[in-house]
Simulated scan of single mutants.
Amino acid sequence: MESVRDPELPGRLLRTERDVLVPLLRARPDEDFALRTCCPGWTVRHVLAHCGAALMRVVEGRFEEGVFSPESNDRDIAERAEWSNSRVVDELERGMTEAGPVIAKAEHGLLDGIALGEWVHAGDVREAFGEPGAYAGEGLGYALELLAGLTRARRTMPLLARLDGRDGPIVLGADSPDPATYTGAAPTLIRLLAGRPLTGTRYELTGANEKELVFFG
């Protein structure tokens, strides 16, 4: 199946998530920014600092060698160590507002995955806060559409996803007459492909194991 890219989709996802996440963050006390997330070694603040830094790199076109490596991410977080939590959120809000048009212009959708990663990290934060529907919400439809396009473009393991409450399956990954199949909730599919904890979820997976389907993490 030929993958047709919608260049505006990453920006729509980022802006939709911005309008939900930023008010939530501004309403939380400072101590909540020290809560641990599912990202090893990272607190809520670390995740938000990483997300804001990544988006501002996109906005400003700063892609030096090794950017987005674990070492680069750690440096970005360390550079913001003396910032107030409010300033960290300010940068994130700006990045989620301004990065979309830059991502849209990138050749071959090179930066599209950044928008999806930001949305998943927002879910990581919501989960650390104990918010319901961590990997759901208003951006889920956009996230699934972007995920489908990215996995098809990168020809990952073929997967036919039959999602609860949705008409028709979603096709992920490379073309195949015999794809693996997933049946379950859409947020659980996001957890599965993002390598997030699956404790307490229910789903059926045939033709593949969980590790084979991790697309990013």
Rank of each mutant, 00 (worst) to 15 (best):
Val22Glu: 09
Asp167Tyr: 12
Leu198Met: 11
Ser72Tyr: 04
Cys39Glu: 10
Ala49Leu: 07
Arg62Met: 06
Asn73Tyr: 12
Leu9Pro: 02
Pro187Cys: 14
Gly100Trp: 00
Arg45Trp: 11
Pro29Gly: 09
Leu189His: 04
Pro40His: 11
His121Lys: 06
Met96Ala: 06
Glu8Leu: 07
Val67Ala: 15
Arg196Tyr: 14
Glu212Ile: 00
Glu127Gln: 06
Val67Gly: 14
Asn85Phe: 05
Leu92Phe: 13
Gly113Phe: 12
Asn209Leu: 01
Glu79Ala: 15
Cys38Asp: 12
Lys105Thr: 07
Thr156Lys: 11
Glu138Met: 01
Gly61Tyr: 10
Thr183Gly: 15
Ala99Tyr: 03
Thr43Met: 15
His108Pro: 00
Leu147Phe: 04
Asp178Leu: 12
Asp112Pro: 04
Leu25Thr: 00
Glu79Gly: 14
Gly207Leu: 07
Ala99Ser: 09
Asp90Tyr: 11
Phe215Pro: 02
Asp32Ala: 13
Leu13Trp: 09
Glu60Gly: 02
Ala180Ile: 09
Thr199Ser: 15
Val59Tyr: 13
Asn85Pro: 02
Asp6Glu: 09
Arg45Val: 13
Glu17Ser: 00
Leu144Arg: 01
Pro187Arg: 12
Glu131Pro: 00
Leu9Val: 03
Glu118Ser: 08
Pro70Glu: 03
Ala186Lys: 08
Thr181Gln: 15
Pro7Asn: 11
Ala128Pro: 07
Glu71Pro: 00
Pro187His: 11
Glu93Val: 02
Ile190Thr: 02
Ser72Ala: 10
Thr97Arg: 12
Gly200Met: 09
Ser84Glu: 07
Leu21Tyr: 06
Ile190Arg: 07
Gly217Val: 02
Ser3Pro: 00
Glu71Cys: 00
Ile103Leu: 13
Gly207Tyr: 06
Arg45Asp: 12
Leu111Val: 03
Val47Pro: 03
Leu14His: 07
Ser69Trp: 09
Glu91Gln: 05
Glu127Asp: 11
Ala34Phe: 05
Arg154Gln: 13
Ala194Ser: 14
Asp178Gly: 12
Gly123Trp: 08
Val125Lys: 02
Lys211Phe: 08
Phe216Thr: 06
Thr37Gly: 04
Thr97Lys: 08
Asp19Ser: 05
Thr188His: 15
Lys105Ser: 10
Leu213Ala: 14
Gly61Cys: 13
Asp30Asn: 10
Thr16Gln: 14
Gly207Ser: 07
Pro29Asn: 05
Cys39Pro: 05
Leu144Met: 10
Asp124Arg: 01
Gly149Gln: 10
Arg62His: 07
Thr151Ser: 10
Pro158Trp: 04
Gly200Glu: 08
Ser3Tyr: 06
Gly173Arg: 11
Ala194Lys: 07
Asp74Pro: 00
Gly137Ser: 00
Arg15Ser: 08
His121Ser: 03
Asp167Cys: 13
Pro169Gly: 09
Arg28Thr: 10
Glu17Lys: 00
Pro169Phe: 11
Glu204Ala: 10
Asp124Asn: 09
Gly137Ile: 01
Glu91Trp: 04
Asp124Val: 05
Met96Thr: 01
Ala161Ser: 04
Phe63Asp: 07
Gly52Asn: 11
Ala148Lys: 02
Ser84Tyr: 02
Tyr142Ala: 05
Leu159Val: 07
Glu17Gln: 05
Ala115Ser: 03
Tyr135Glu: 03
Glu210Phe: 02
Val4Phe: 08
Glu65His: 10
Lys211Thr: 08
